[in-house]
């Protein structure tokens, strides 16, 4: 059992939970995820870790309520507990000094992007972040992102905040104005697909963090397999980040509709 120690509602459907998990708080790196269960009948839900506090022994999860299980988890209040939390899972992000790194996140994808932004900044990179959402209230963690970015561009579909347009417009603006050495993108599969097509055109190496369907999250079931460079790879143990230009996003989107 892992106790919820704090909760913040980012928007109607997006909730931040700070959860007691001292061992994971200590061992996790940017890019890692956990699997949580709401109760003893609960699904195993993979969630990327947004932050951790080693001293307090907590990790931060940002969850979008999209299905029954995530709705239940978002309904938890401080003092309640998650039945299970296991991790950190997956491979950590390859952090090094690339030069200029473009970090581009859509919706709740900004949450797992934040530790990568921080780590890339700490590694000496110039970090330019592009945050995107349908409207102003869906832009999350802006303050935290600004703290670790040299520049931030905000894009909203409806123009209610930042610039109006899709995430790709912001990405293209950056690539056109300055030399970008590396790009990391996290968000809905369709968004990552178009970011990837764009960075491929400009030959910017890009990593995308995938949100596949998983059961165990430890390589046992293969539900999360996705074609990367024509080869089936397991997102849970080999990912979640892969070379975006090699990922078959159409297949990923098809597989995400499996249930």
């Amino acid at each position: 059992m892992n106790k919820i120690v704090a909760k913040e509602q980012f928007s109607t459907n997006v909730t931040k939970l700070v959860v007691e998990a001292p061992l994971i708080a200590k061992s996790r790196r940017a890019g890692h995820f956990v699997i949580v269960r709401y109760d003893d009948n609960g699904e195993r839900i993979p969630l990327t870790i947004a932050d951790s506090d080693v001293a307090a022994g907590t990790i931060t999860l940002v969850i979008q309520a999209i299905g029954d299980s995530t709705k239940k988890i978002c309904g938890l209040e401080p003092g309640d507990s998650l039945h299970d939390v296991v991790g950190p899972l997956g491979q950590a992000t390859r952090i090094k000094n690339y030069g200029t790194v473009l970090c581009c996140g859509g919706g709740v994808g900004v949450a797992p992007l934040l530790p990568i932004i921080r780590a890339m900044k700490a590694a000496g990179n110039r970090v330019v972040s592009v945050l995107a959402g349908r409207s102003k209230d869906l832009i999350i963690l802006e303050k935290e992102v600004r703290e670790s970015s040299d520049d931030v561009i905000i894009m909203t579909d409806d123009g209610s905040y930042g610039k109006q347009g899709l995430v790709t417009a912001g990405v293209e603006e950056v690539i056109k104005r300055e030399k970008v050495d590396h790009c990391v993108t996290i968000g809905p599969a369709i968004m990552m697909k178009f970011v990837s097509l764009l960075t491929k055109k400009y030959e910017v190496p890009t990593e995308a963090s995938l949100n596949a369907i998983m059961v165990d999250g430890t390589g046992m079931c293969g539900a999360c397999r996705v074609s990367v460079g024509g080869k089936a790879r397991f997102v849970c143990v080999e990912g979640p980040e892969f070379d975006a230009h090699q990922i078959d996003f159409d297949e990923l989107m098809m597989r995400l509709k499996s249930y």
């Binding site: 061992l23 061992s27 939390v85 296991v86 950190p88």
Partner: peptide, 9 residues
Amino acid sequence: KNVLVGRTI
């Protein structure tokens, strides 16, 4: 339970 040696510890 929920401890992955090599990861959690």
